[in-house]
Amino acid sequence: MSDYTITIGTFIAIQAIVACGLNVIVGYAGQISLGHAAFFGIGAYASALLTTAGGFSFWGALPLVLFITGFIGLVLGLPSLRLKEDFLAITTIGINFIVVSVFLYVPFFGGALGIGGIPRVILFGTRLRGTPFLFLCLAFLAAVQLVSWLFTRSWSGLACFALREDEAAASSMGVSPVRFKLAAFILGTAMAGLGGALYAHFMRFISATDFGFPMSVMILSMVVLGGMGTLWGPVLGALVLGMLPEVFRPLTEYRMFLYAALLLLMIRFQPGGLLGESSLARQIFSRLKGGEKE
């Protein structure tokens, strides 16, 4: 594999981790969130600061990073208990803008210059770069997928599904909306934090603009395109949207346009996502299955 392919693969793996986190919040718990990149950023900044100014190793910082992102996710998830739909959607956009401004304007976070000199991850005494780091990201992605899968099978997951479908009915069955929505927020934002930490140690230099609203849109597009609320949807979405610009790379000038146009076409003609119900993939799959039986 060329360095270039490895770099793209690493980006895709990291974004898939972040998208899985958003899937927990939006797909499983039904809470709209348009500011997920904020938590991606919080994870990246937390890990960057802990490993540079704080002197921690990546592994020492990681639990703290997950805790910090999850905790901020909990606090910023509170509006979702009061606000509905469009208000919540716009509020989460606002949270994204405000978090980015804090990174940009508070000197502690390095201001417009961002944070540099972030050390590489050291595992078994070797500094990970290139392929080994890609494998580390894939291992974390596998772990995140495992956690997502376990979550969908846990009572907490079922409680979230019920809340997504009908909050009043769910709470009449003993599901506390506060507790389980916030649980989904903590889990989803902690996953974003993990992605952020990996991103920081991969780039070794981060700045606030990496985590702006366009990134949130990108992550949400991955989840929606792949199939919201499905286990593999976000991973597929990250793969498709991560590869598209590379596929179009020879067409430098039209690359971004084709990307946007394709996103538009996909959302227009497969709004349920590539793996969602009544999607083309599902239909073909079920036809094949039906064919076998006959």
Partner: peptide, 22 residues
């Protein structure tokens, strides 16, 4: 107020989780 996208069985199972949600 059913949970429309869950199966009938899972609708009932949601309620069976009552002791576990606390």
């Amino acid at each position: 107020r059913p949970f429309p996208n869950l199966s009938v069985l899972d609708n009932v199972i949601v309620a069976m989780g009552l002791p576990c949600y606390r």
